[in-house]
Amino acid sequence: MFNGARRLRFQGLDLVVLPRAGEHRSQLDAQRDALLKLATLARGWGSEEVPRMREVFKLEPFHRATSLVLVFDQGRLCGTGGVDANFAECPPDVTILHLCSLNLLDEQKRTGLAALFMLLLGEELLAPLPAHRPVYFTSISQSPLVYRLLTRLAKVYPDGRSTPPDDVREVARVVAARYDPHIPLDADRLVLRNECDFFYRQVPYVADSRVNALFDSELDIAAGDVFVNVGKTDAGSARAAVERYRGRFPKMPEAHSDG
């Protein structure tokens, strides 16, 4: 399965790295049921909620990933990390890297997997870019944990203190138009109201109380509100930020390819 993928072992888990995820569409389709169960459990709900997840969960973001990492524990899908870099309406000479899939079970959330995702995906997507090129890391999320992850890479909006700059607002519009064209974007707050029908059972708060307060004050989680998070940087700074993750993996897992 997934011929041509890079494969790594990390803390007893099997990682499958797909730099060109679109080439594996049929094999990814075969993971539909496993992905629905993972997404349900990763949001703190039990298996009994999978039928409802099947009705409302959006699979399009997963399938839009340009590059994707899948995590398996003895053949069971237990994690995904994907980035969409295919924005036809992107402003000229700008790169948008949209975190379109991040699902981890509770037992994997403190293993460093999210950091490893950023290292593996960032290396692939940032390498060809000139250092001065503007790069925007984005996500559509109601998770403070995802927001905090982006702050490791760039200055992130909304920040709860200032109105987003014009370029950030424009990037947010591009991302929202690709993923939620039917929902108006509140460009001052970078909020989409009533965007999702399946939310976290418990909000994944972080140690930074300011970040938690931003989500509590601006979003109605139960109503399905989300932020369009936008992190602003350049390719050189982004590569340096991603490279810092390597320090967490002094013995980087060795990868091998199927072909």
Rank of each mutant, 00 (worst) to 15 (best):
Q202K: 14
F117G: 04
C90M: 05
A187S: 15
A255G: 14
R152L: 08
L119T: 01
E55D: 15
E123K: 07
H24A: 07
F249L: 13
R6P: 04
P61C: 07
S141I: 06
S67L: 04
N194I: 00
F72K: 04
P61T: 02
R210I: 02
G259D: 15
G236R: 09
D33P: 13
L99E: 03
A21S: 09
E49I: 08
I183W: 12
L190Q: 10
T163R: 06
M1P: 03
V69I: 13
V83C: 07
F72R: 07
G79L: 01
V135A: 05
V83W: 06
L105T: 05
D106E: 12
N212G: 09
V146C: 12
P19G: 08
F10K: 12
L120N: 03
G236M: 05
G112E: 08
M118P: 03
R244M: 05
L35D: 09
K109E: 15
V16K: 06
R7H: 14
S217Q: 08
E124K: 10
S237I: 06
T40H: 10
D33T: 15
I221G: 13
F215M: 09
A39I: 02
N103C: 12
D93S: 11
F87V: 03
A114E: 05
G236W: 00
P128K: 04
L120P: 02
L8I: 01
W45K: 10
Q74H: 13
T151K: 15
S47K: 02
L120E: 03
E195Q: 13
R52A: 09
V83P: 00
A34H: 12
D106W: 06
M252G: 03
G4K: 10
P19C: 03
A30D: 11
L129P: 01
V168E: 04
V50Y: 02
V206Q: 10
R6C: 04
E60R: 14
G22K: 01
L116K: 01
F87H: 07
V146L: 11
P253D: 03
W45S: 09
G4A: 06
S67H: 14
S237T: 14
D166R: 10
R178T: 14
D208C: 14
L150A: 07
L149T: 07
L120D: 03
A21Q: 00
P204C: 07
R64Q: 11
V17L: 08
A30G: 10
G79T: 00
P204F: 11
L113R: 05
P51S: 11
V135F: 15
P204L: 06
G160D: 10
E170K: 12
P51C: 06
N212A: 09
R244T: 01
S67F: 04
A39Q: 12
Y179P: 01
